[in-house]
């Protein structure tokens, strides 16, 4: 089992650094590249939700990333100390709407839910924690 942790400011400008952290882990743990796309997308969507919507004007939230890989699954946990917010309560976007009526709100979380095997949210000790899991095929 391999694991890595990193703490960084929940600022949109930190997104490339957050992605680089994940890519570094991917190389070190020799994980499948196709799965890397899924996790990079999930990290971007979740991190930006915190950075763009979780922050109040007085303070940049702190974000903690934890990624763990075993023989059977990869788990990414994104925790933050912004105001309590469960992204899984966001309404599913209407993906059948016409071009003019399309909105992008909620689409990122929709993608994360579709692409991950499990996504769960908890709020504990002042922190939002979103836990995302993808099973590894036993081939």
């Amino acid at each position: 089992m391999k694991t890595a942790h990193w703490q960084l400011p929940g600022d949109a400008e930190q997104l490339p650094a957050a992605i680089a952290f994940l890519q570094g882990f991917w190389e070190e743990a020799e994980l499948p590249m196709a799965l890397g796309f899924t996790f990079e997308l999930a990290l971007e969507e979740v991190f930006l939700n915190v950075a763009l919507h979780g922050a109040d004007s007085s303070r940049v939230p702190s974000v903690e990333l934890a990624v763990t890989a075993s023989d059977t699954e990869v788990v990414l946990v994104v925790a933050d100390d912004a105001r309590p917010f469960d992204p899984l309560t966001l309404a599913t976007p209407d993906i059948g709407a016409a071009l003019e009526d399309r909105t992008i709100g909620g689409l990122g979380v929709h993608l994360v839910r579709q692409m991950m095997d499990t996504v769960s949210y908890t709020y504990e000790a002042g922190h939002n924690r979103l836990r995302m899991t993808k099973h590894l095929s036993q081939s």
Binding site: F37, E40, L41, E44, I104, L107, G108, L111
Partner: peptide, 12 residues
């Protein structure tokens, strides 16, 4: 190689 919801928005 990669597109996120922020990128999708541009296509829209």
């Amino acid at each position: 190689d990669y597109v996120s919801s922020a990128g999708l928005r541009v296509f829209l």
